[in-house]
């Protein structure tokens, strides 16, 4: 009796695992070469000349990265490889601003973040154009979005292997971007 129900349970589990395995996350195995550069048309502000908000034309490819565990995991690796953590730590910030909170000086959408990485920003963010391939910039940007819980929790990275600076990205409560944040002191006069 007892062993019978255990068997039934195990069978159910095995079936569930099999069904789950049918849906495999798609990966882009041959990303576009280094030379290409995505051109998303984004704004850094919510106001525009005229009554309507700023015109934004994005390709929508950001959604693919934000839903992909593979891309965010790759992004987390590149985040350390390209020394992002030297300034932004594990999202809490340092010489650069925090990335795990809801404050975004230069916009918090994935397209904004891709542009920030590629173009740099005037208060010290270096430009990585020509240093990081386009595909990897998107992956890093998707990982950065996961730091503030703005990617789905089943695709965001899980716990680290070693030091835990904070609960894993997949457990970070979502904090939708708010424009603003600490802007460096303005140059005199």
């Amino acid at each position: 009796m007892c062993s019978g129900s255990l068997k039934a349970l195990m069978a159910a589990c095995a079936m569930g695992a099999l069904l789950g395995a049918c849906q495999r996350e798609e990966r882009d195995q041959r990303p576009s070469p280094v030379a290409s550069e995505t051109r998303e048309q984004v704004a850094l502000t919510t106001n525009s000349a005229g009554p309507s908000p700023p015109e934004i034309r994005v390709s929508g490819k950001g959604a693919k990265y934000e839903a992909s565990a593979y891309d965010q995991s790759q992004g987390k690796k590149y985040y350390a490889w390209f020394n992002c953590n030297g300034c932004h730590s594990n999202g809490g910030g340092g010489s650069g601003p925090p990335l795990m909170d809801d404050r975004w000086i230069y916009g918090g959408s994935i397209e904004n973040i891709v542009q920030t990485i590629r173009e740099g920003r005037p208060n010290g963010m270096p430009s990585f154009r020509g240093k990081i391939p386009d595909e990897q910039i998107w992956q890093i940007a998707a990982y950065v979005r996961s730091m503030s819980g703005n990617t789905s929790s089943d695709s965001a990275p899980q716990r680290n292997d070693s030091m835990h600076p904070h609960p894993s990205e997949s457990r970070t409560p979502p904090s939708p971007p708010v424009n603003g944040g600490t802007v460096a002191p303005s140059p005199s006069r």
Binding site: S89, N90, G91, G92, G93, G94, S95, P97, P98, M100, D101, R103, M163, P165, H166, G181, T182
Partner: peptide
């Protein structure tokens, strides 16, 4: 004091090279 002057996020203990 970077946690205050840079408005860092206290949830990340490794922020500001671990000082946070």
């Amino acid at each position: 004091g970077a946690i205050v002057s840079g408005d860092l996020d206290p949830r990340d203990g490794t922020a500001a090279l671990g000082f946070v």
